[in-house]
Design a protein around this nucleic acid. Structure first.
Lengths: 231, 231
DNA sequence: TGAATTATTGTATTTTTTACAATATACTTG
DNA sequence: CAAGTATATTGTAAAAAATACAATAATTCA
């Protein structure tokens, strides 16, 4: 390899995940408390350098997520790459950002080796983040808003069976606006890819709501027919 | 820097641009004929390794575009990063893909130092491309379809003054479907961010069409008021 | 002057969106 | 077990948007 070429092969590439979860408090993001330099003792987005011998950005992002949550099948997608010259104190590190959506009730988050703690933060109460993680988070939030109006990804944040009210709260939390109950239900049901499970809530001290589930097969059928999901 | 860390700082990062142009033949992409290894004598997307000392992905993408077109103010946006392990024969090279929209009539394309030729190819008649450039191109095409329905970027591909028929042909070429003349005009004009220049075509052997121009100020005003561009 | 060619425009119908409030069902408490 | 509490569920009328459809207008050229 000539000298000219060699000067180019001195970068590192990392992944950083913006992991969204939803509960009764609203929309949350998973942060880790860094146990190592740089930015030891700071809350940050979970991320790691990519192992150049074995990983692609996609596989590295999945690994970070699995280490932190133990989950295998999660919704994850690339956001974009951030590469400011001074974004990392150790050298030229480009980072490929990802966003992931998980069902918080399906498992518990465990801080892994490289993180002393892992904790959910409501999206409006984040601490100041190191590197360019504030920028990454803001970008991810906008992307989530955009995507949820165009693709049926909201279900990734809810339990398998959910009520229409829960679904509405989710959309309201993400889009930061309120919907009329009747119109919301009309629209969602007219899209025809969620189905009634026949089950109901129990042990609630009010009229129990019907439980629905997302029907990916119906959605796929609609999409291949040129349907336009929109909310 | 410890040995463990050093193993990570051995990657290179490049940019690759998918540059779209529009003319009477339809939608085109700019390819270069590579004058250097690897893949010498192959048509490929214009791209280059990022200079780690001076450039971010964004600035590198702008440079590639400027070298090829001489243009300064062009629409350019990041697509995503591709990082398959074997995508580059010289080592681990991640590439950040960009897409750009240019007014083909505003200037002429000049092959630069690292490219023996530069030529427009209709998007349905591309040669087979090296690296993962086929994948990048296909991704860019889908993204363009998506974006043009949501943002007023189509104007970047047309001359400053354009006719409504030209605008319609552009949308039809990108979205690969036809629109009704009356409904298309109604919708575009109701959006109210293109304005009549008072000028007309001349020297055409038929009724001359009125020339319109895109009014970015009006669009911005609408957007900040929460308007939803959609076609 | 008329033939050729593309530009421009309106209306009726259907579909979608919006605004708006009363009734139903379960649990809890006295 | 009756009344109270809390949330779930449903319909309709009006407005707005999308769609389907074809005749007339303006210029150049022969």
């Amino acid at each position: 390899m000539d000298i000219n070429l060699q000067a180019h092969f001195q970068a590192a590439v990392s992944v950083d995940n913006v992991i969204f979860g939803f509960d009764t408090n609203g929309l949350n993001v998973l942060l880790i408390y860094r146990g190592a330099e740089p930015f030891r003792d700071h809350w940050a987005l979970p991320g790691d350098l990519i192992d150049l011998k074995t990983d692609t950005p996609d596989s590295a992002a999945v690994k970070v997520l699995r280490n932190l949550t133990g989950l295998e099948e999660i919704y994850i997608d690339q956001i974009r790459t951030f590469g400011r010259l001074d974004r990392h104190p150790y050298g030229r590190v480009f980072t490929v950002a990802y966003f992931a959506l998980i069902k918080t009730q399906d498992y518990s988050v465990e801080a892994s080796s490289w993180a002393e703690q892992a904790e959910w933060f409501p999206i409006n109460e984040l601490p100041d983040l190191p590197f360019d993680h504030n920028e990454i988070f803001n970008y991810a939030k906008e992307l989530l808003k955009m995507k949820i109006r165009k693709q049926p990804i909201g279900f990734e944040l809810l339990p398998k069976n959910f009520t229409l009210t829960e679904l509405q709260r989710l959309y309201e939390a993400i889009l930061e606006k309120e919907f009329d109950v009747r119109n919301f239900r009309k629209k969602i049901l007219s899209m025809d890819f969620i189905s009634d499970t026949g089950l109901k809530q129990n042990s609630v001290m009010h009229r129990p709501a019907k439980l629905y589930k997302y029907n990916a097969r119906k959605y796929t059928k609609l999409m291949t027919g040129g349907y336009d999901f929109d909310l």
